[in-house]
Design a binder for these strands. Structure first.
Lengths: 339, 339
DNA sequence: TTGTATGCGTTATCAT
DNA sequence: ATGATAACGCATACAA
């Protein structure tokens, strides 16, 4: 086992001082060509690489980014991570991923763990429990300590920091508008309880589009599920009691499940009923029929988040100026709507 | 901005030495009750937390695990990460995720970056390019440096280390057997080139089951795609030239895509053709019909990987004894086969 | 009971 | 041109 070599080891072997070695490896002008060559050759031979931890301690910079997300078995969040990774890696940063699993406590614990020197900044999306509790002290503490924070997708106005979101209201609006333009009159919305910021915004867009088109806003056509799991019973019950000619769902799973339900009832999609979902994932692409969806551009979101964070991390000035970037969603039209 | 407080700060404020503070906060018997209480109260008031980096440097233990995977927008890998996180977090470890994006070079760069002190050990799954190149020097270097390594799913015999795999051959066998038991005679296999260890093993199981049942092994019924992307043209061409009554695919996407193709041709699934895929993800659950699949138990795999790694990391003894854990896949029977 | 000194691996400042 | 020293934050063996 050839263990890692340190500056000290090189110094001892070559009978020079540690600082000489350090300078030589940085190609300092102070050191003579001869000794530089000797030291560099030796270092190369023994594959010397500076120890990241020591450098972190010295520089008070870890070159690590903490990413805290509610769920990783989830298409949207993984695309965001991919975007973060891409940008961060290019800038020499590593990404420490922590999962809150939608739990407030885990979110707090994870952040505290990372905040003690492990990372230079946070990129995160709030857990549903945190949004429900509306308690953001753990975020505030972090920012008060001067640790940069970027919130994405599931954000809150309660915390002053950089944010990256998509215009979910616009997404809801665009989708609903599309259904209206198809001539649909009885447009249902399947969503989650309002505590989830994104669901709320999407519902807002839905309402706006309906009102704008002078379609009545029928609250009984809105189904609010308490979690993001597919609640089969509620959905069945809903469709047994509602006549609809179009459905907007706040995620892929609700969409595909509902669609199948109506298909089993003998309805044709999109002839009898049109469907639009949120998230442009595998399900949308491979469902039958393929789904028309509002795409969220997660990878872009990740890249922008990372960019904003690293800028803050590396900027010297202390001026507290935060911005919120709003990305526009895109309607990807496929076969669950009429073209 | 209230910046982080250090032992030194506390020592200065309370006019004691740093070591006294350090000991007091560890509740050492050496320190008098009075000073302990005073120091602990002060520390609590100012929310003192030891700096992880300093501790890492001192202990030569980072409490970080490096996870290198080929792709994160991928159901199986995310379930594995979830399992790793779960176990690692419970043990006080953080997870640094790096993506090779199926590239050999990125895999090498990521590992080198992490190997310089950032992590205590690696958990990884090989990129397809690495498996194709059959070059594992970067892994060997890491293990020679004494850094523990656990390979999962996509592994190689070329490297001596702990491994966790599922019995892919058995999975292929079970699936094929199920199709044979249904009375299928013309069973196709849609897979990737052999360089992917898992695909190779699955194909082996397929062959074994056919031969065992005295069914002829017709190589023209095997379609090898060069990547994991859906190659629409090749698949269409294949089904235009092959008559089949059952199809086994090495992933979900191939399965759903092929199934749709045959459905468009007017065939009924599973009446005319049965389908079995690998990976029990969203697609399988929500496809139409719902897929019968070989489940890989990714989360379990992640937990076991983390457990094996942490055991090695924390064990003192140097004895090089490696083990390979083989998990059994499970056949999840749904509606794309006949029950 | 408290404090001093040393070291983890590196870099920067200040001698020599 | 080279080296000694201090510092990053913490822990610990050893002194007092």
């Amino acid at each position: 086992m050839k263990t890692k070599i340190t500056l000290k080891d090189i110094a001892r072997e070559l009978e020079v001082s540690i600082s000489t070695v350090s300078k030589a490896l940085k190609n300092s002008e102070e050191i003579s060509r001869d000794t530089k060559e000797k030291i560099q050759a030796f270092a190369k031979l023994y594959n010397y690489k500076p120890n990241n931890i020591a450098i972190s301690l010295k520089n008070k910079r870890t070159k690590n980014i903490g990413v805290v997300i509610p769920d990783i078995v989830h298409h949207f969040f993984t695309t965001v991570i991919r975007g973060i990774e891409k940008y961060a890696n290019a800038k020499g940063y590593n990404v420490i991923v922590c999962l809150s699993e939608e739990s407030f406590d885990k979110e707090v614990i994870n952040m505290e763990m990372l905040a003690n020197g492990s990372i230079d900044g946070f990129i995160m999306s709030l857990s549903s429990e945190t949004q429900a509790k509306n308690d953001y002290n753990h975020l505030k503490e972090v920012t008060e300590q001067g640790i940069p924070l970027v919130l994405f997708d599931r954000v809150t106005n309660e915390v002053d920091c950089d944010k990256v979101i998509i215009d979910d209201e616009l997404g809801g609006y665009m989708a609903t508008k599309k259904l209206i333009d198809e001539g649909r009159k009885k447009i249902a919305l399947i969503t989650t309880d309002d505590y989830l910021s994104v669901s709320k915004a999407r519902a807002e867009g839905y309402r706006k589009a309906l009102l704008e088109s002078n379609l009545s806003l029928d609250e009984s056509k809105i189904l609010k599920l308490s979690t993001m799991e597919v609640d089969e019973k509620s959905i069945r019950h809903f469709f047994n009691n509602q006549e609809v000619d179009a459905v907007l769902c706040v995620n892929e799973v609700f969409t595909v499940f509902s669609m199948r339900l109506l298909q089993e009832k003998g309805l044709n999609i999109p002839k009898d009923v049109s469907f639009i979902g949120f998230t442009n994932g595998l399900l949308s692409e491979f469902a039958n029929p393929r789904l028309t969806v509002v795409a969220q551009h997660g990878e872009k979101m990740g890249e922008i988040s990372a960019q904003m964070l690293i800028e803050k991390v590396e900027s010297e000035n202390e001026e507290e100026t935060f911005q919120t970037k709003i990305l526009e969603p895109t309607l990807v039209v496929r076969d669950s709507t009429i073209n």
